[in-house]
Computed example of a mutant assay.
Amino acid sequence: MKILKWFFALLILLVIVAGAIAWTLPADVAYRYVASQLGPVSLVGVRGTVWQGHADGVSVFGRDLGELDWQVEKAPLFARRLHADLRIRGADIDTSGLIERA
């Protein structure tokens, strides 16, 4: 019975640590893992967190678009939805938009 209590305590501790890592995950670390899945989109100078960050440059099919800022809402993720606010600023483009995915 004592081993079971230790197992549950360790499991709770691991969940807390994983949550803390996900809450503060640097954007450049996450980008390294998903860069191969973004296809023709590439980012340069990624900083901030996964939830709120900045990229010094974003390019699509080799064409530089400018800087990218993003902000992802955390609460909708609990309902398996994504709400992200994006803004691209460059020489030829200045646009913003909201991405929503269920």
Score class of each variant (00 low, 15 high):
Val15Ala: 14
Phe8Cys: 09
Gly39Ala: 02
Ala18His: 06
Ala27Ser: 11
Trp23Ile: 04
Pro26Cys: 03
Ser59Trp: 04
Gly53Phe: 09
Val41Gln: 06
Val46Gly: 02
Ala35Glu: 15
Pro40Gln: 05
Phe61Gln: 13
Leu65Ser: 00
Phe61Ser: 09
Leu65Cys: 07
Ser42Pro: 00
Leu43His: 12
Trp51Val: 01
Ala20Leu: 13
Phe8Trp: 12
Ala20Gln: 13
Val34Cys: 02
Leu14Pro: 00
Val29Asp: 03
Asp28Asn: 14
Arg32His: 09
Leu10Met: 12
Leu65Arg: 03
Leu10Asp: 05
Ala30Ile: 02
Leu10Gln: 01
Ala27Val: 04
His54Phe: 15
Gln37Ser: 14
Leu14Asp: 00
Arg32Ser: 10
Ala35Cys: 04
Gly57Leu: 09
Phe61Asp: 15
Val58Asn: 06
Val29Trp: 15
Asp69Val: 07
Phe8Glu: 01
Asp28Thr: 01
Val15Thr: 13
Asp69Trp: 11
Arg32Gln: 15
Leu68Lys: 02
Gly53Leu: 03
Gly45His: 05
Leu43Arg: 04
Val41Phe: 14
Gly45Pro: 10
Val34Met: 06
Gln37Cys: 00
Lys5Gln: 11
Gly66Thr: 06
Val34Pro: 03
Gly53Ser: 12
Lys5Asn: 13
Leu43Thr: 04
Ser36Tyr: 05
Thr49Cys: 05
Gly53Asn: 10
Gly53Gln: 09
Ser42Asp: 10
Val46Ala: 07
Val29Tyr: 13
Val50Met: 09
Lys5Tyr: 11
His54Ala: 09
Val15Leu: 14
Ile12Glu: 01
Pro26Trp: 10
Gly66Asp: 08
Val34Ser: 03
Leu11His: 04
Ala9Arg: 12
Leu25His: 06
Tyr31His: 10
Ile12Pro: 00
Leu10Thr: 13
Gly48His: 08
Thr49Leu: 09
Asp28Val: 01
Ala35Asn: 11
Asp69Leu: 06
Leu25Arg: 03
Ile21Gln: 08
Ser59Lys: 07
Arg63Gln: 12
Arg32Thr: 07
Val60Asn: 07
Leu65Gly: 04
Trp51Thr: 02
Ser42Leu: 12
Leu13Phe: 14
Trp51Ala: 07
Gly45Leu: 06
Val44Lys: 15
Ser36Met: 01
Ile3Lys: 15
Ser42Gly: 02
Ala27Asp: 07
Leu38Asn: 04
Ala55Asn: 08
Ile21Pro: 05
Gln52Val: 01
Asp64Pro: 00
Gly53Cys: 05
Leu65Met: 07
Val60Pro: 01
Ala35Gly: 00
Ala18Leu: 10
Ala20Trp: 09
Arg32Leu: 04
Val34Lys: 03
Ala55Gln: 06
Arg47Trp: 01
Gly66Ser: 07
Glu67Gly: 01
Gly48Ser: 11
Val60Ser: 02
Val15Ser: 09
Val58Asp: 11
Asp64Tyr: 12
Val58Gln: 05
Tyr33His: 04
Gly66Met: 07
Arg47Asn: 14
Gly45Asp: 11
Gly62Arg: 07
Leu25Tyr: 13
Leu10Phe: 11
Ile21Glu: 08
Ala27Tyr: 13
Leu25Met: 13
Asp28Leu: 01
Val60Arg: 06
Ile21Asn: 08
Trp6His: 12
Gly53Thr: 02
Ala55Leu: 05
Arg47Asp: 14
Trp51Gln: 03
Gly62Asn: 09
Asp64Ser: 15
